[in-house]
Design a protein around this nucleic acid. Structure first.
Lengths: 216, 216
DNA sequence: CGATTGCTTGATACCTCTCAACCCAGGTGG
DNA sequence: CCACCTGGGTTGAGAGGTATCAAGCAATCG
């Protein structure tokens, strides 16, 4: 998929992030748009103001792994190399701030706040990636799904309800499983009264502590 | 395992790393020592001068995941939080430089080289962790083992010979498999003449390109 | 030597994948 | 309005890959 043209769809103005001393552009992206693709030159990095962004990479033969989902306040697209190693797409309508690398790089040498901001983001990313690796390397399907649900319970304003922005396929590719296994596991958790699916995207959490124990 | 006492076993002197403007202590660690454990306070981070260091974490029930192996020139132990989230141990005799966080943090605000050094290390760690996640989430046993071998071919001075510093159990926990599967896969690769095992720790690479293709 | 530890190999079990059918909601067009 | 189509989700049956359990082997170390 080609990179989304950098045309503002709604808002576009200078903004200053709460934690970010660097100036950036706020833009609106419609649902299902590609922000950048694997291999695109990494001129910008981004901050989610609202909505959900999916980062993923695809192997030659089509196997896909979803690296992470980003929500309000999270940075993404910071790359060690010249080009992006992942693809970023919007799962919902999003407001996203983009920061130009050049400007920030200059600031980093003089501005402690900026460099600390980016550094702590990078460290946080490392921690997230490690937890993801533990999940993928050593957890069962049920544990993975439970961990996934706990992750979104934590991000939800109401800890008893989860509104999923992503499809079963996205969840499968994030957890290193197949859609069928995701579906079966959800159904199993529902039979055991840990959750209830109002619709396939709307999950009610019935027993959070049991879910947490399962996610171990 | 408790943290290894910070007693110099052989050498101990002030050093300045090639890329590192920060001062540190060079120490020698014998094989099989714990440098720090999960939960220890993260006063230091480290740079490998020689030898191999294994980073791992363990779940409650004993399942272990090896996060990474570090060799000459690599940093480890940089943490976003106050305490270490992984355990670091030496797989061979090692020379390791430790840097005190306090000193470096102060430097980071004034010294561009230091902050760049740490930042680029962090970004590199992110990339490594992502590749590990792809391996764990979407690759078969054969592909994982092939990727593992390719990784060490790249680190080896002689690209036709790999001297493994780690046990089969370490490899298994790094690749999210069991020792038996590692052993069977090695044997299969040997039957197919892609490698030859002189001893269990000494692997001769017979067909590197085939190995690389397999690792995809 | 005998004991120990790590590695290899075999037989079987189990979990997840694969393939296939079906269901359901939403959208389209006659 | 309804028949049809479509795509995502669910469920079932069977296959397959890796884990588990168990035995045997090889190297190392008292």
């Amino acid at each position: 998929m080609p990179v989304q043209e950098h045309r503002a769809l709604a808002t576009r103005r200078d903004v200053r992030s709460a934690g970010a001393p660097a100036a950036g552009f706020l833009r609106h992206y419609r649902q299902g748009r590609c922000i950048y693709d694997e291999g695109d030159e990494a001129h910008f990095f981004y901050e989610v103001r609202s909505g959900v962004v999916r980062m993923s990479s695809v192997l030659q033969d089509g196997r896909r792994l979803v690296d992470s989902f980003h929500t309000e306040g999270q940075l993404f697209g910071l790359e060690p190399a010249r080009s992006h190693t992942l693809c970023a797409e919007t799962l919902s309508d999003c407001n996203i701030v983009s920061y130009r690398w050049n400007g920030v790089e200059a600031k980093m040498s003089t501005d402690t706040m900026t460099s600390n901001w980016l550094f702590s983001y990078a460290m946080q990313t490392v921690t997230t990636a490690r937890n993801h690796a533990i999940l993928l390397g050593r957890k069962t399907a049920t544990e993975r799904v439970a961990a996934f649900l706990m992750e979104w319970v934590g991000r939800s304003p109401d800890p008893t309800v989860i509104v999923l922005a992503m499809s079963r396929q996205d969840i499968a590719d994030y957890l290193g499983l197949t859609v069928e296994t995701i579906s079966r596991t959800f159904s199993k958790l529902e039979r055991e009264s840990l959750i209830q699916m109002t619709t396939s995207r709307l999950i009610e959490v019935r027993n959070r502590s049991a879910l947490r124990r399962l996610s171990a």
